[in-house]
Amino acid sequence: MVARITLVSPAVNAALRQVRFDDAPLDESAARRARAAADALPPHEVMLTAPSERCRGTAEALGLDAAVVRELRDLDVGRWRGRSLDELAQEAPEGIAEWLADPAVTPHGGESVVDLVDRVGNWLESWSGHGGRILAVAEPAVVRAGLVHALAVPAQTFWRLDVAPLSVTELSGRSGRWNLRCGRPLTAAE
Rank of each mutant, 00 (worst) to 15 (best):
D74A: 12
W80T: 00
S128K: 14
T58R: 00
D39R: 13
L64N: 03
L72W: 04
A50L: 02
M47S: 15
A145P: 06
E170V: 13
V168M: 14
R79K: 09
V148M: 11
G63S: 10
S126Y: 05
G109R: 00
A97H: 10
D39P: 08
L72R: 03
P154C: 06
D118L: 13
D76F: 03
G82C: 02
I134D: 11
A104F: 05
D65I: 03
L62I: 01
P103F: 10
A136H: 06
P51W: 06
H44R: 14
G129C: 12
H108P: 06
V114Y: 04
P154A: 15
V143E: 00
A66V: 06
V163P: 11
S126M: 02
N122S: 13
G95K: 03
D115Y: 05
P140I: 01
D76R: 03
M47H: 13
L75N: 08
L62V: 01
R79W: 07
E60P: 02
T58F: 00
T49I: 04
E60M: 10
P140W: 08
V46I: 15
A50H: 02
R144T: 01
E139R: 12
W127E: 13
A150L: 10
A61V: 09
A155G: 05
L85D: 05
E45R: 15
E71V: 05
L72H: 07
